[in-house]
Amino acid sequence: MKKFIDESWLVLLMGIGFACLLAGAQTGLNDRIQDNKKAALNQGIAEVVPDLGSEAPTMFEIDGNNVYKCLDNNGQLAGWAIVGSTGGFVDTIELVAGLSPDGNTITGIKVLVQNETPGLGDKITTDPAEKNFYPRQYTGRSTNGPFSLTKQDPQNPNDIQAITGATYSSQYVMDIVNDIIMRIKPQLDQHR
């Protein structure tokens, strides 16, 4: 026993010291990290709900999805921001979709978290070269029926054109949007 303590007192002491250090760093920086997360979400909401006022949106939950009720500067309903996510096979994708006050039109989508292949799949978030071609397709669409993915130029009103070389990433995003408009949207009325 004495030998054991002789050999390992430094390790034990360092273990305790480091654990305290980490706990300190966690307490010190956690607020800031949470603020960053919130700021990223708020920025996303501001992008997909164009008329959002200065008042912070109120949050509630529908079937496990966080929904934000957004007011404009006059206190009128400006739209809804709904957060949805999927277990994409590569990684989680999380996005926020904006709906118009009556819930019938998509006012924009913004991917918040993704880890898709750089240069291909990550075009679901930003794609400066093609002016965010993929996410922009959803803006202004009606929320009547589920969207379907196509690799050619869209023919039907509910078609969404996939990103070349990233059909699966496009599919995941579309699945989340479909889930939001088919499952969450009909329940918005109770929260007006």
Binding site: F18, A25, L29, I33, K37, A39, A40
Partner: peptide, 16 residues
């Protein structure tokens, strides 16, 4: 230990 601290610092200051 220091990698965990670096992780916190990065998330706090260069989140994206």
């Amino acid at each position: 230990t220091f990698v965990t601290i670096a992780d916190f610092l990065l998330k706090a200051f260069v989140y994206d």
